[in-house]
Design a protein around this nucleic acid. Structure first.
Lengths: 109, 109
DNA sequence: GCTTGTTGCTACGATAAGTGTAGCAAAGGA
DNA sequence: TCCTTTGCTACACTTATCGTAGCAACAAGC
């Protein structure tokens, strides 16, 4: 069993309505949040490896995002260490996977 | 013809590699960026209406995001005023549209 | 002309968020 | 024991965002 953390807080920054999409958009619209999910997409990473994958982002923010993503139930810290996606997290990740293909097309315009 | 703005800058904050996905993730991972695209999803809005839709977010950031999104080619300012999605922007928006359905399921867990 | 109301957009001080460097305690291997 | 790696934190600094106010440009009504 992976280590647990508290439930997701719902009244987040800038989402006064509390509508789930808004909360989600707000959560994902924070620095490195999308990137973290992206980097964990196919395999778990240790905190250090994740930092490296994220262009040596500040550990302060990474830790903050990881905590938030864990509270949201998208990310978990495995028993033997290393961060990975939960089933829900994998599902979310696949939701915006087409972004990759889009980004490639986008560059050419 | 809609008003034009300069080309997208590629060497953005936190994306030192320049890989398109990273640039895109970084661009969308800024405050209100995802939300703006979301709010424009079915109809153009004036800057004031957009502000209202975004929980009265500060016009400073909104204007900054709108400029960035215009430079990226996702948003445009119509001739008669009002911000709307470009064809590319609509495409991008549909890319993470499934997020809505996901968010609903997410709330119940 | 002169208001009245809208548009997109900006200035600016205050606050919150993110950065960069350093370092901690705990756990594991040699 | 020593060395390395783990997840994680402290702290001073810079950047981003907030909130309020207000601008010039344009149009409609009078």
């Amino acid at each position: 069993m992976a280590k647990q953390v508290g439930p997701a807080r719902q009244g987040v920054r800038g989402s006064r309505t509390g509508r789930p999409v808004m909360v989600l958009l707000d959560l994902l619209g924070r620095r490195w949040a999308l990137r973290i999910l992206w980097e964990l997409r196919d395999a778990p990473l240790t905190s250090r490896a994740l930092r490296t994958a994220c262009d040596e982002a500040s550990p302060t923010v990474l830790q903050a995002r990881l905590t938030e993503l864990r509270e949201a139930g998208f990310v978990e810290l495995g028993d033997g260490g290393g961060y990975g996606l939960t089933a829900l997290g994998r599902e979310l990740c696949e939701t915006f996977m087409p972004l990759h293909r889009f980004a490639e097309r986008w560059r050419k315009s």
